[in-house]
C-alpha cells in the first residue's frame, strides 16, 4: 500500500512537471520524431488543453450525475413506475451505441465545437450512473424499509434518511466509472473541434508524429488513472467517516 501511494505521488509530480514545463521532456520524446519534427506539442499549452479537457468532463459528469440520480429515484417511486421498463431497456441499448456515432450525430443538432462533446459525454455518462442508482436503491432490504415505515417516516424521509445513504456506495461507484470513461471518450471530441487533449493526438496522427500521439495519450491515460484512484480513495474515506459516526 505504501509503495502504491509513493508511486501515485511520483506520478502526480511527473504529470505536473510535464504540464508545467513540457520542454524539459523534449529529450524523452525526441527519439520518436522523424525528419526534425517538433517533439513537444506547442500549438497550444498542454496545461490549458488539460484544463479544458477536464472541464468538459466535469460539466458533463456533473449534469449526468444530477439527471441520472434524479431519474433513478423517480422510476423507483410509484409515480414513475410506468417508466421503469423502458428506462432499463434504454440503459441496456444505449450502452451499445458507439461514442463516435453519438458524437457525430450530435453535430447536426448543435454544430461543431465543445457542445456536441458535452452532449455525447452527458448521454454516455448517464447510463452507468442511472444503472447503479437503480441497483443501489433496489438492494435496500425490504425489512429496513418496512421498519422505517413503522417508525412513521414519510416517503421523502425514507428516501433521504434511509434509502439514499444505503445506496450511496453503489451510486458513487457508478459516478467514478462514468467519469473515467468520459475522460477517455472526450479525446474523440477533438474530431469535431472540441478543445481538449485529443487535439494533440490528432495532430500526431495527421502529421505522422508519434511523439505527439504518445504525449497526448499519456496525459489522458495518467489523468484517468489518477482521478480513478482519487475518487476511490474519497469514496472509502467518506464511507469510513460515516461508519465511525454511526
Amino acid at each position: 500500500m505504501r509503495v502504491a501511494t509513493a508511486l501515485r505521488l511520483a506520478l502526480v509530480a511527473l504529470l505536473a512537471a510535464f504540464l508545467a514545463a513540457p520542454d524539459w521532456f523534449e529529450p524523452v520524446f525526441a527519439p520518436l520524431t522523424e525528419n526534425g519534427a517538433p517533439a513537444i506539442y506547442r500549438q497550444a499549452s498542454l496545461l490549458q488543453l488539460t484544463i479544458a479537457h477536464l472541464g468538459t468532463v466535469a460539466v458533463a459528469s456533473l449534469a449526468a450525475t444530477v439527471v441520472a440520480v434524479g431519474l433513478g429515484i423517480f422510476v423507483s417511486r410509484p409515480a414513475g413506475a410506468d417508466f421503469l421498463p423502458l428506462s432499463r431497456a434504454i440503459v441496456n441499448v444505449g450502452q451499445t451505441f458507439p461514442p463516435v456515432a453519438v458524437l457525430a450525430l450530435a453535430v447536426p443538432a448543435v454544430g461543431f465545437g465543445t457542445a456536441p462533446t458535452l452532449i455525447a459525454l452527458f448521454l454516455y455518462g448517464l447510463l452507468p450512473i442511472f444503472e447503479n442508482t437503480l441497483a443501489g436503491l433496489r438492494q435496500v432490504p425490504a425489512a429496513v424499509l418496512d421498519s422505517a415505515r413503522g417508525m412513521g417516516l414519510t416517503g421523502r424521509q425514507r428516501l433521504v434518511e434511509v434509502e439514499l445513504p444505503l445506496a450511496l456506495p453503489v451510486i458513487l461507484a457508478g459516478v467514478r466509472y462514468s467519469v473515467v470513461v468520459s475522460i477517455g471518450t472526450a479525446t474523440i471530441g477533438s474530431t469535431v473541434a472540441a478543445r481538449g487533449l485529443g487535439e494533440v493526438i490528432i495532430a500526431g496522427l495527421t502529421s505522422g508524429n508519434t511523439a505527439f500521439v504518445l504525449q497526448g495519450g499519456l496525459v489522458v491515460g495518467v489523468t484517468a488513472v489518477l482521478i480513478h484512484d482519487g475518487l476511490l480513495a474519497a469514496e472509502r474515506r467518506a464511507m469510513a467517516a460515516r461508519a465511525s459516526k454511526a
Binding site: I183, T185, I188, I201, G216, G217, L218, G221, A224
Partner: peptide, 8 residues
C-alpha cells in the same frame, strides 16, 4: 484507460 485514439 488509454484512450482509443492514443492506443491506435
Amino acid at each position: 484507460t488509454i484512450p482509443s485514439m492514443a492506443l491506435f
